Amino acid sequence: MPDFKRISAELSDQDITELRALVVAARSKLPFLRNLTTQERKELAKLGDKTVGFDEKVQAYMVTNPEFVPGFIDTAEVHKDRLLRTRFMGFLSEFMTLAEHMDDTMTILGSEILMADLAYYQSVREAAKRGVPGAQQIYDDLRTRFPGGGGRTAASATA
């Protein structure tokens, strides 16, 4: 039997108001956040674990050999970006973990709800097969969720 109480909690209106205020406060501290399109995500160069060492070497060379820095590169801006990235990485994992936990919680809640819905649906289907008054109408309404069921009503299935 499924566990319908993996999560048993409530959020008050006040809790939701306070959580939204926290999100607004976080966003106000991060006004530089941007949203990329799928295409932009594919096209942008990525500074990942394998290229951090390369960046560290380039950073050192930019300082010791500035004559090779192209004129269109603002080294102060690159330094600013590096510093922001370092600080951002300091708390990004905490936000990502929170988002993952929230997503997992939504999955569990959805599963618990759907399992209860399916148990109710099976009960109504069985009641309709047995001719329990009122069950057939509910079954006919709910079974539209499962169009591959052959289109037979409970009454015609037992006939």
Rank of each mutant, 00 (worst) to 15 (best):
P2F: 12
K5I: 11
K5E: 04
I7G: 03
I16Q: 04
I16M: 08
T17Q: 11
E18Q: 09
L19H: 08
R20A: 10
R20E: 08
V23W: 14
V24I: 14
R27Y: 09
S28E: 13
S28K: 14
S28Y: 07
K29F: 07
F32S: 04
L33T: 00
R34E: 00
Q39C: 02
A45H: 08
K46Q: 13
V52G: 10
V58I: 15
V58P: 03
Q59S: 11
A60Q: 14
P66V: 01
F68W: 07
I73C: 07
V78W: 04
H79I: 11
H79T: 13
L83V: 15
M89G: 08
L92M: 12
L98W: 12
L98Q: 06
E100S: 02
H101T: 08
M102D: 10
T105S: 05
T107Y: 06
I108V: 15
G110M: 02
I113K: 09
L114R: 15
L114W: 05
A116P: 04
L118R: 12
L118D: 03
A119W: 12
A119L: 15
Q122V: 04
S123I: 02
K129S: 06
G134S: 01
G134E: 00
D141E: 14
R143C: 11
T144I: 04
R145A: 15
P147L: 11
P147K: 13
T158P: 05
